[in-house]
């Protein structure tokens, strides 16, 4: 098992003081919203209210929120992957419209045309989740090139899984971003399984971030269950990119608590392994960190959880009340 080091305590202090208590508590709340969103998704699926499949990111919330918080969501660009509900919510997208998209409703971000695997919030530069492994990765250099040609100080954050790092497109994209010195942050969310295949079996290197060496870009591996570690690494990569120094490859090591999708019986891993990772739950971990720093009380943590739960209930009510897409509009958006 890959060992990731904890942030030194003085770095934790430094980060927390620059983030501030209010924003730190908002990050905690966003993680909680994602957790409850995913649990609600699972429940709605069990109730037969969801038409398709879904990929849940329970256990991976710190990577989503840590990364999005470290860039300027809405100004910078995001590309992400099929396990993307959390990325969209972490980007600050509306919970109601995210839920409505998941439920296939007209009020959803994609008017119910995209669904769980294709949630995008284009107005806020979230260029979408992607149903194809590494599908979003080669798009990122194009976004980076556009930023460069337009002369803005935006960056493009592209999130993909460990499985994607074995796709050719990942290698082409990292190389192109490197030779053109583009402002792209390649964030590999290593949840340790590409469907049923563990990354240890799928790649013969200890760290995916080592692949950065092959393309002449900085690479580092962080504890993906530590929100501050992700925030720190992505923040540094963003500063590097904005300074015109080019792309970075970050590997964020986390763990998928649930199966790959709804049809997964998880015969490829043990219950003990899952339990071991559940003990590393990123949400109480960050809450403890804030409590220790005097930024949060136990009572406030409960209030955070209540607010998060209320947002999810409201989102389901909103989505239930939203109309189905009208069949007369079926061809809209095929062509401009």
């Amino acid at each position: 098992m890959l060992v990731t080091h904890s942030l030194p305590s003085d770095r934790v202090e430094e980060l927390l003081s620059s983030i501030g208590a209010d924003q730190a508590c908002q990050m905690l709340e966003r993680m909680q919203v994602i957790r409850y969103f995913e649990e609600k998704a699972e429940e709605l699926y069990a109730l037969g209210k969801i038409h398709g499949t879904m990929h849940l990111s329970i256990g991976q919330e710190a990577t989503a929120v840590g990364a999005s918080s470290a860039v300027r969501s809405g100004y910078d660009y995001l590309l992400n992957h099929h396990r993307g509900h959390g990325h969209c919510l972490a980007w600050g997208s509306d919970v109601n419209r995210t839920m409505a998209e998941f439920m296939g409703k007209e009020a959803g971000y994609c008017r119910g045309r995209g669904g769980s695997m294709h949630i995008a919030d284009v107005e806020r530069n979230n260029l979408g989740a992607n149903g194809i492994v590494a599908g979003g990765v080669p798009i990122a250099p194009g976004v980076g090139l556009s930023i460069k040609l337009r002369g803005t100080d935006q960056v493009c954050l592209v999130i993909f899984g460990d499985g994607a790092s074995n796709e050719g497109a990942f290698h082409e994209a990292l190389n192109l971003a490197s030779i053109w010195n583009l402002p792209v942050i390649f964030l590999c969310e290593n949840n340790q399984y590409g469907m049923s295949m563990s990354i240890q079996r799928a790649a013969n290197i200890e760290r995916i971030s080592l692949r950065a060496v092959a393309y002449g870009v900085p690479g580092e591996t962080v504890d993906g269950n530590d929100l501050l570690a992700v925030y720190d690494a992505v923040g540094r990569a963003a500063a590097h990119a904005r300074a015109g120094s080019g792309p970075t490859l970050i590997e964020s090591v986390t763990y998928r608590w649930r199966g790959h999708s709804k049809s997964d019986r998880q015969a490829y891993r043990t219950r003990d392994e899952v339990k071991e990772w559940q003990a590393k739950d990123p949400i109480p971990r960050f809450a403890r960190c804030l409590i220790e720093a005097g930024m949060l009380s136990e009572a406030e943590f409960e209030a955070v959880q209540q607010r998060a739960a209320q947002q999810i209930e409201a989102a389901v009510a909103f989505s239930d009340a939203s109309p189905e897409p009208d069949v007369s509009t079926i061809l809209e958006g095929v062509y401009a």
Partner: peptide, 26 residues
């Protein structure tokens, strides 16, 4: 050289770069 670029022989990245740039206003 900014607007007219030689690319490596990376057809997935060439198409992806076109798409990414197009999605963001180019």
């Amino acid at each position: 050289a900014e607007r007219v670029r030689d690319t490596p022989i990376s057809e997935a990245a060439i198409a992806g770069a076109c798409l990414g740039a197009a999605l963001t206003g180019m």
